[in-house]
């Protein structure tokens, strides 16, 4: 494997890891606030559809982005109402959100475009085109550094850069701001927040809304960056892999970057090398695809450190009585 191939693999890992990263950070906000969200998959799918559809109709990726975020937000609202207002089971609500998106997107896609549940191919301004960073052209022949800059750092769509910028931003918000302090508190002990005179409901809705926006970006990237349009079930379990990454990262933003890029790399490798011959064993493609899930189970089992979720996670807040 030569250097150029490695760079290509890493480049592909970044592309494939980006939707995971955005979705993972989306889940992080919600779960840190005590709302479990297994509906990331559905929100991404909804966003992918609406961004693809609106971008196809208007020819503007930016309008698509807004529509995508709006679609994901609407499902966030459903999840928020179920988990916060009506104090329902957050897991059941998440399952429902996923099915809702899975059915609804195809239904509407078929009704609008009559293409068997997909949206028309996007081209030109309907997609987020790669951005060439300044000087990339000039240095691309410089060995190693130039290649890295040109192939790995440069040439991604704006959403990739946004996703990476979100990592330090999330860390900063979570650990350096008043909002972050309250958000973490409400996920650990909502009573402490309530007795301090802060509205638990508003905090949690805010968190769930941020989850909607970020998973909206994730879905939009799928349909307008990674691919050129929406295809039925195009998230293909990425929402669950993001969830796995979130557990893997123990609900922390910087490890979330590591976990999602690792999973992105795994996908990139299995795309490029369907069978990996390690001499002793031959790893089939199916194994490579299952690795993120297997890793998550191992993490959950506590064989590599313990993953302790936010203490109030999954429980609706009811004033004690």
């Amino acid at each position: 494997m030569d250097f150029a191939t490695i760079v290509e693999l890493l480049d592909s890992a970044v592309r494939l890891g980006t939707p995971l990263l955005l979705a993972c950070l989306a889940g992080l906000f919600s779960e840190r606030a005590g709302i479990f969200d297994i509906g990331l998959e559905g929100k991404m799918l909804m966003a992918a559809f609406f961004s693809g559809a609106v971008a196809a109709v208007t020819g503007s990726a930016w309008l698509g982005l807004m529509a995508g975020v709006g679609g994901a937000l609407s499902l966030s609202l459903v999840h928020g109402m179920a988990s916060i207002t009506f104090r329902g089971n957050q897991l059941i609500s998440g399952v429902a959100v996923n099915f809702l998106a899975s059915g609804f997107t195809v239904l509407i896609a078929q009704s609008w475009f009559h293409q068997g549940g997909r949206t028309p191919q996007l081209s030109g301004s309907g997609r987020f085109e790669p951005i060439t960073l300044p000087g990339a052209e000039a240095v691309k022949d410089v060995p190693v550094i130039g290649q890295l800059y040109d192939n790995l750092l440069s040439g991604h769509s704006i959403l990739v850069y946004v996703a990476f910028a979100m990592v330090p931003l999330t860390w900063w918000v979570l650990f350096r701001t008043r909002f972050g302090l309250r958000l973490r508190a409400v996920g650990e002990n909502p009573e402490s927040v309530d007795t301090a005179g802060i509205s638990v409901v508003r905090l949690r809705y805010t968190a769930v809304a941020i989850t909607g926006v970020l998973s909206g970006l994730a879905g939009t990237y799928l349909a307008t960056g990674l691919a050129a349009g929406f295809v039925k079930e195009m998230t293909a379990g990425r929402g669950y892999i993001a969830l796995a990454a979130l557990i893997f990262a123990k609900w922390r933003p910087v490890p979330a970057l590591g976990a999602t890029m690792l999973f992105g790399l795994l996908e990139a490798i299995s795309n490029r090398y369907p069978n990996i011959d390690l001499g002793v064993v031959n790893l089939p493609i199916q194994f490579m695809q299952a690795v993120p899930y297997i890793l998550t189970v191992i993490i959950l089992a506590g064989f590599i450190g313990k993953a302790i979720p936010p203490r109030a996670g999954g429980q609706p807040y009811v004033k004690e009585r």
Binding site: R176, T177, R178, F179, G180, L181, R182, A185, S192, V193, A196, G197, I198
Partner: peptide
């Protein structure tokens, strides 16, 4: 952190 929760003076901690 417990002391200031809800009685913060501004958006930054």
């Amino acid at each position: 952190e417990n002391i200031i929760l809800g009685a913060e003076d501004g958006a930054l901690l």
